[in-house]
Design a protein around this nucleic acid. Sequence first.
DNA 1: CACCATGTTCCTTG
DNA 2: CCAAGGAACATGGT
Length: 282
Amino acid sequence: MPELPEVEVLVRHLDPQLRGRRILGVEVGRPRVIRPHSPADLARSLVGRRIEQVRRRAKYLVFDLENSGETGPQFILGHLGMTGRMFLQSADEELPRHAAVWLTLDQGRWVFEDTRYFGRFHLDSSVLAELGPEPLAPDFTADRLAAGLERFTQPIKVKLLDQTLLAGVGNIYASEALFRAGISPKRAANRLTRPQVQRLWASIREVLQEAIQGGSTLPLDFAGAQPGLFYYGLQEGSGSSYEERLRVYDRLGKPCYHCQTPIRHLVQAARSTYFCPRCQLR
DNA sequence: CACCATGTTCCTTG
DNA sequence: CCAAGGAACATGGT
């Protein structure tokens, strides 16, 4: 599921269901995902506490806990890794095969399942310390993006994955933003022209915002199998292939939606990049 | 069997 | 100290 838009849509889905719920029990199917803490640590932090709200920071879900006037964290953080899902079910439903953590609530059960177990829970805020700005927040300006890029010779595609530059863009939306801005993924970060930075800034925000809207307008059932929910398929209500939500990612060899040139693929920092060699010349 | 996959962290090298 | 590249993590799909 997991880049900024997917986490945002999940948070909007979970928040109204979890707000005000009290945690009665904590179970851990894979201790790995709460490392370096133990299941007992997690239970100690959560049992008896009420969830105040669910919100998002970058790709992290923040579960704010009602102040119990005692010790214990103000919130816990969840990260979906590559394949994580979170959903609510009733207490008598069967747990999924790869249930990593589940919470018994005063009403129903909350489940974190993750086939690859790359997801994580954190009981403190240390992982947030190094994160860059939220791309959709007012303090993320084109000036700030320009300043963040100027020292670095890495390819711009690689730099967009750096969560200290801006927090929330992942491998798919990095390709999408560069395609939309008409910038080569190979361009050194510090060699972008000022107009390119401006276009990239706008493209990042558009791509993320549209993805959130696309997910928010779909009927969501996070417990069910909806493998293509975010990344593939057509925008609801659209009839034309031009409305595909992803315009370059995973389209190797297919015609560019702008110029019909076959989309190309390359590997940068061990991750796949997709781009149009004609629309993204420089 | 081989290779690929939405992410982060850690290690090595320069 | 920093930049850059690669492996590791673990499972499933093609």
